[in-house]
Structure formats: structure tokens, C-alpha cells
Design a protein around this nucleic acid. Structure first.
Lengths: 304, 304
DNA sequence: TGGAATATATGCGCAGATCGCAACAAAATC
DNA sequence: GATTTTGTTGCGATCTGCGCATATATTCCA
């Protein structure tokens, strides 16, 4: 037979308020209903929980034993359900967002600020990781959403393009190229290039795009992170080819960011979620916010 | 709207077993029923808890959050209800018995032994107290049952007479009266009497019975407990008038217990419970056991 | 590419649970 | 002894939850 939560809840309220009528009023049902719930519960258990005359209600010995347990169960239950209803009603709760470090520094602060306006109580657990790890995190549900770079399409991922992030040329003001409006790939054949590790999506993407066009460059230095590359540029070690978003105008005095053309090579920044998985309301709200404010019309992500 | 325990339980089992069919089998219902329970729960909460294709069932982010809480609630609930059903089914559990010390030493060991045969797992919490305290304990539900001495009838107590406990004369073998088959109250006018404190029911009862008959005795010593009185008798300090049950034949070498007649004065040992209160099954079993093995036909407890 | 197998969802109808109303019964109060 | 208060019971209406049969979706495998 099935466990009768209503009966137990009725028991707790009656015991607490000391009477069927008071409890009935409190629970917005008739007192009749409570009488029957208790009768049903007692007959199910084979025990009396309440000794009741027409005048007084009093706990039996068993009822006294059971009351504290019942109270705990009922309050835990109502609290847990209440939390869930809050989540659905007000999109409350927290969720995990996986994000590549560049974007975490670039667009995320603004997004988080906007999100905080509509959902001030929500927390975003940020998982900063490489583009591959972002995909994995979303696929394995470690994160509900991801912000990464478009790579190989995965059938279980839904990607929303956010914006294009062209590769640009970074150098010091002292560099001869620094005054040009734009530079071409062939311009940098002799440069001391700082490139990021070929374990990063940016590098793989860049190599792929260049190989496709028969351009080959020599990398003098290889670093792990975009931020390191920028620092090296600032320190005068060399020049770098990095996504535009790595750098905000004015971030680093003395460092110039120059468009790189012929061809313009762009990586696509995407918002990603798992297909066939339901987002928590908190994540859903973020997803919609990002799509609304930054999403482009879904388009083919082939280059050029 | 009412909280749906079944739905939550279904959720837990489905999540745990990884499928509706397995869960349905485990719970001895059809898979249809579970589908509906989850649908109802989800629509009540306004949240999806399970992402399910016709092939796989998988927790949503919210479901993953909720599962551990739900598991705890469900297991606490089923455990608590299980304990209660055990109580009713097998009269399991413990209860509190208030008992005067004399009887705790006299009949209780046997009763407890008998009770342990039928209900070996049950524990009796023993509250040893004066006869007044026994009544109070039962009236205030600190104890479900009491073993005491009949005094003033209380409308909220149900008393079952167990046996009569006549006052007897206790002395050493060296005492001149020790060889008599019985002694009368007048026989002990000159004796060095040890009496128990007038705070005890025995003393009050004795005084009342004697006053009624115009007999007056002088008490040379006054002690708190029957056991002390016996010890003093054994030590040769004097003689005592005590309930017969204080003493088992052979308990104390050198001490004689002699019937006290003209008149025979008896206190009534009673089993007592509260009127209009339901006993726990464990207490009920004890109550029935005692009534069956020691109860006399309910009779007027007036003396003589 | 198209069944076979497997797993969840749905239409439908029945049985029982639950509720509210009204009347009743018992205990306390005045 | 009437009145008030409070729990219980009879009854009818409604709602809930279930199972059966069937539909639908997905995967597997030939």
C-alpha cells in the first residue's frame, strides 16, 4: 500500500495546533477531511496516533514518538518542494557554465552583469576550460551551457553563433608594421612570431585556415595562453597572431592590434548546449538572454 | 495543491534504476502509472526532472540537484513508517513503566521475564518511584503503565487489582514472638518498632487502617525504604511492620515474617493506566500479560 | 533501408479515494 | 438543561490513479 503523506502532514499540523478545527482552518480544508485522513492513516498503520474525545486531542505514546520524526520529514519535504517551485517560478538556482578563458575575460563580465539584473539571486558556477573541454563539459552535463569556439560539429550539441572573432596582428608601437591600417599574412613572413600552443583551438584553427591557403609561418615562441602571448608582445619579445577579442583597445599601453587581412580569418564564438536536454530555469534564462543580446541569425559556420 | 509523495518516490526509483520499466517492475505497478506520476509531478513543479526519449532516461540538471534530497526524504519516510508498522504488527517498541520499589523487586523480575519471552526485542524503561509518583507519572503520560498501591481512586485512572499484600510482622528469630504462627496488633504494643516514613503509601495506609480501629503504636525508628527496615531488623535493631511482599522467605537468614492478624490489614497492589488513553502496542502487550497472569477479578478495593 | 526489439507515452474507461455538506454525538460551560 | 464546541458519520459528487491496449519513438541489426 502507498504511503500517505497527506495523512502524516495532517497529523503533524493537528498535533502542533492541538485540534482538528484549527488545523483544518490552517490547511484550508474542512475538518471532516482531516478526521478521515487521520482515520485512514491510523488504520493503515494499525496504530492510534491521537487520542481524541470530542473535546480534546492528545497524542498517544506512539504519536509522541512519531511526531518529531514526522515533523522533520514533512518540513524537509515541503522545503524541498518549495525550492523546486521557486526554481521554476522565478528561475531561481545556480547552474554551471563552461567558458574558454578569452571569452570569460571578454564578453562574460557583461553577460553576467546583465543576468544579475534579472536574476540577482542566481549564481553561475564558472568552469573555465579549453574549447575542447567546454564541449566535453556540456556533453557530459558537467555544465549546462558552454561558450566556446566553433569546431567540429557534434550531433548532440546545439550551437548558437554569437559573433565572429577575427585573428589579428599584435605588436608594439615600435614595430614597423604598427602604423598600418591592416596587414596581410605575407607581411609577417619575417616576423618573430609568438603563437599559442597547438593544443589550443585557436592554433588548430589558425593552422587549418593557413594550410588551406598555402601560407606557412614560422613560430619563434610558443605559449599556452593568449594572455601570456600578449604579455610577451608588450615586453617586446615579438609579435603575435591572436583573436581580436583577446585584447581590448587600451588594455596594454604600447601594444597595437592591427587587422589581419588577405584573407581575414575568423573563429566563430558560439554558445553551446546539449541537444535533447532540458535546461534548468536558471540556465534557460541565461541562454535566452545571451541569444537575445548576442546571438546572430543561425548561419552556416563555414569560413569566408 | 497537495504534495505528491508517490511521484517523488517514483522519481527516485526511476532515477536509481535508470528506467520506467525497471522501476515499474520493482514497484509492482505498470509502467503507465509511473509515466503518469512523473508527468503529474513535473507539471506540478513546473520543471522537468527527467529527460527521456523513448529509449533513455536521464536526469535533467534540476533532477540531479533534487535526487539526493528526494532520496533522503523517501528513505526517511519509508523507514519511519516501517518502524510504526513494525510496532503495530509485532508489538515492537519500548514503553515506560512506573513502579514502586517493593514491587520492582518482588513481582517485576518475573513479569519482565515473561514479557521478554513474547517480546524479546522490547525494552521497558523503568521508573521507580513512590506510589504517589507512580500515579502522577501515569496521569501525566510520563509512564504508560504503573504498578503501585491502591489509594484514593482517581477518575482518570483505570486500576486493575493484582493481589493483596498484607502487612506482616518482621523480627529476628531471637524475638519472643518469632515462634508464633501469627501475631496480633496488640501483641506489639511494647515492641521496638521500625516503621517507614509517613511519606510512603505503606505508612499512610497503615496509619489509616490502625486509626480506624483505634490501635496506636509507637514507632521507635523511622526509615525511608522498606529495604532499610528489613536490614535494621536483620541487624537486631528491632521489629518492623511491613508488607509481606517486601520479603521473600529465605531472603535474610535469621529474619522471620509472621502474619499479623486481628485484623488482617492488606494493601492492594494494582496495575494502573490512564483512562481514555491508547497504549502503545508494546505497553498493551505488557498490560494484557500482567492482567492475564496476575489480575484478579476486578473487585471493590475496600478493606476487610 | 527497413523491419524487429525495446522503451516511453497516450486514449479510454473503471474503481476507489477524497472531499464537502449536513446531520449526529459527546463533552464542557454557563 | 440548554448552548457551545469539537470530533464523527452518512451520503453523494467528483477527482485521482490505475491498468489495458495501443501508439510512438529510438536503436539495433540485417
Amino acid at each position: 500500500m502507498k504511503i500517505d503523506f497527506d495523512g502524516i502532514q495532517a497529523f503533524v499540523v493537528i498535533a502542533e495546533l492541538g485540534g482538528f478545527n484549527k488545523a483544518a482552518e490552517h490547511m484550508h480544508v474542512t475538518q471532516t477531511a482531516l478526521t478521515r485522513r487521520i482515520q485512514k492513516l491510523e488504520s493503515y498503520l494499525g496504530l492510534k496516533l491521537l487520542d481524541r474525545t470530542t473535546r480534546y486531542v492528545e497524542l498517544t505514546a506512539v504519536g509522541r514518538d512519531f511526531l518529531p520524526q514526522a515533523r522533520v520529514i514533512v518540513s524537509e519535504m515541503t522545503a524541498a518542494v518549495g525550492r523546486l517551485k521557486d526554481m521554476s517560478k522565478y528561475s531561481r538556482g545556480s547552474f554551471t557554465l563552461a567558458c574558454v578563458p578569452t571569452m570569460a575575460a571578454h564578453i562574460l563580465p557583461k553577460l553576467i552583469r546583465e543576468y544579475a539584473e534579472t536574476s540577482p539571486k542566481n549564481r553561475i558556477r564558472l568552469l573555465d576550460a579549453t574549447s575542447y573541454e567546454v564541449r566535453d563539459a556540456v556533453l557530459s552535463s558537467q555544465a549546462e551551457l558552454g561558450i566556446g569556439v566553433h569546431g567540429e560539429q557534434h550531433p548532440d550539441l546545439i550551437e548558437t553563433p554569437l559573433f565572429d572573432d577575427p585573428l589579428m596582428f599584435f605588436c608594439r608601437e615600435s614595430n614597423p608594421l604598427s602604423r598600418m591600417k591592416s596587414v596581410t599574412w605575407s607581411d609577417m613572413s619575417g616576423a618573430e612570431l609568438i603563437v599559442v600552443s597547438n593544443l589550443t583551438a585557436t592554433r588548430v584553427f589558425m593552422d587549418y585556415q593557413l594550410a588551406k591557403r598555402g601560407i606557412s609561418l614560422s613560430g619563434a615562441y610558443e605559449v599556452q595562453h593568449h594572455a601570456t602571448a600578449i604579455s610577451l608582445v608588450a615586453a617586446g619579445v615579438g609579435c603575435a597572431i591572436l583573436p581580436a577579442s583577446t585584447f581590448q583597445e587600451g588594455d596594454r599601453p604600447g601594444v597595437r592590434r592591427i587587422p589581419l587581412v588577405s584573407p581575414v580569418v575568423k573563429r566563430k564564438v558560439i554558445l553551446v548546449r546539449r541537444r535533447n536536454s532540458t535546461l534548468s530555469p536558471a540556465a534557460e534564462a541565461f541562454y535566452e538572454l545571451v541569444k537575445r543580446t548576442h546571438g546572430k541569425i543561425d548561419q552556416e559556420t563555414a569560413p569566408d
